[in-house]
Simulated assay, not measured.
Amino acid sequence: MLTSLPVESISDTAFLTAFYRALETECPDSLFQDPHARILAGERGEKLVEAMPGGKSGAAGCAVRTCVMDELILRTVQEDGIDTVLNLGAGLDTRPYRLPLPTSLYWYECDLPVVLAYKAEKLAGVQPRCVLESVSLDITDSITRQTFFQDVGRVAKQVLAVTEGLLIYMSTEQVAALATDLYAQPQFRWWLTDLASASALRYFQQSVNRSLNSSDATLRFAPEEGTEFFRHYGWKSVELRSLLEEGQRLQREILPQSLLTQLQAPEHWEIWRKMSGFVLLRRH
C-alpha cells in the first residue's frame, strides 16, 4: 500500500493544493465542493502548509484558481464541443469526480506513476462522472509526450489541454517545446493555464523557493512578454483573467490587507493586477 510520495519533490505541490482545496470546501461560503480533497491531502498536506511562508494564507489564491478554471473548463466543454480534456501534471485534482461533466467526455489525467498510484489508492471505489484514464507521463520527456499526444489526436476530435500549476516549474525551453507539441496535433484546439508575470516570479522566488528544497520544485517560467509568448508557437490568448480581480469578484482576499491599502494608486494596482492570472488559449 502506498502511503506517501518522495520527500521534497514537485509532487509535494499536489499535497499543498489538495489541502488548500479541503480548507475551501470546509468554508461556510465555499466556492466549490471537493469532498475528496481532505483524504488526498492527508497529514502530509497539512504539515506542508504549516511549513510554508504564510501558512494557510495561500488557500485563497488556490481557491480562486480552482473556481475560475472550473468555470472555464465547463464553459469550453459545453460551448465549444470539447470531447476530450488533457490534464497535464494533474496531481491530486478531482475534477472528473466532482464537476458536472458529460458522461461521454474523455478525461486524461497525466502525471508521474507514483502520484497516480497514490491517488488511485485513496479514491478506490469512487466513480468518475466521465470516461477517465490515468496516464503515467513525465511531461518533460519529449519523446514519450509526443507519442502520447499523437495517440490522443488519433481518437479525439476537439481537445482542451489543461496545465494548472505546472508551467511555472518548467524552463522557458521546456514550455516552448510543450507548446509546439500541443500545436502539432490539429485536434488540440484549446489550452487553459495559469500564468505568472516576470515581476510575480521574482516576488515568488524570494518567498517560496526558499521553502521548496527540491531543485525540481523551483519556480522558473514567467515570460516577460506575457501571453504573447504562446503566439510564437501557434497559440493565441482569447481570454485572460487576473487573479487579483477574480479574488475580488469571488470575495477572497488574495493579498494581505496591509498590502491592499498600498495599492490605491492606479499604477500600483495595475502592476499587481497583471502579476498572476488565468489564460485561455486557442490555436491560430
Rank of each mutant, 00 (worst) to 15 (best):
A124L: 04
C27H: 06
E121A: 03
Y97L: 07
G91P: 08
S136L: 00
P96E: 03
Y106T: 05
S30D: 08
Q174C: 10
Y106E: 02
H268M: 05
R249S: 14
P223H: 11
C67F: 15
I254A: 01
E245G: 01
R189M: 10
G42Q: 08
D29P: 00
T227V: 11
F148G: 13
L74C: 15
S242Q: 08
R44T: 12
D138Q: 04
Q187R: 13
R21Q: 13
L250E: 10
A22R: 01
F204D: 09
I168S: 12
K157Y: 14
L123A: 01
D83A: 05
V279W: 04
E228R: 13
S136M: 00
P186F: 11
V68G: 02
P6K: 08
W107N: 03
L192K: 01
D93P: 14
I271V: 15
A161I: 13
K47T: 11
V7K: 14
V159M: 08
N213R: 15
M170Q: 10
S237R: 04
W235N: 03
A184K: 04
Y233L: 02
A196G: 13
T193M: 11
G247S: 09
Q205D: 01
V208P: 00
L112D: 00
E224L: 13
F19R: 14
T76L: 04
E267G: 04
L263E: 09
R98K: 02
G89Y: 06
Y169W: 10
R44P: 06
G81W: 11
L263M: 06
Q33D: 05
I73L: 15
K122G: 05
C130S: 04
Q251L: 06
T218R: 09
W235Q: 07
A196I: 14
A120N: 07
I254Y: 12
L2T: 05
W191C: 12
R65G: 10
E43K: 13
L92P: 01
E8G: 02
R145E: 04
F32Y: 10
R21C: 08
A18C: 09
S171Q: 09
S237E: 14
R129Y: 02
Y233Q: 10
E26D: 07
L195E: 07
Q206F: 05
P53V: 04
Q264W: 03
R202M: 01
E270A: 11
S258I: 10
H232L: 04
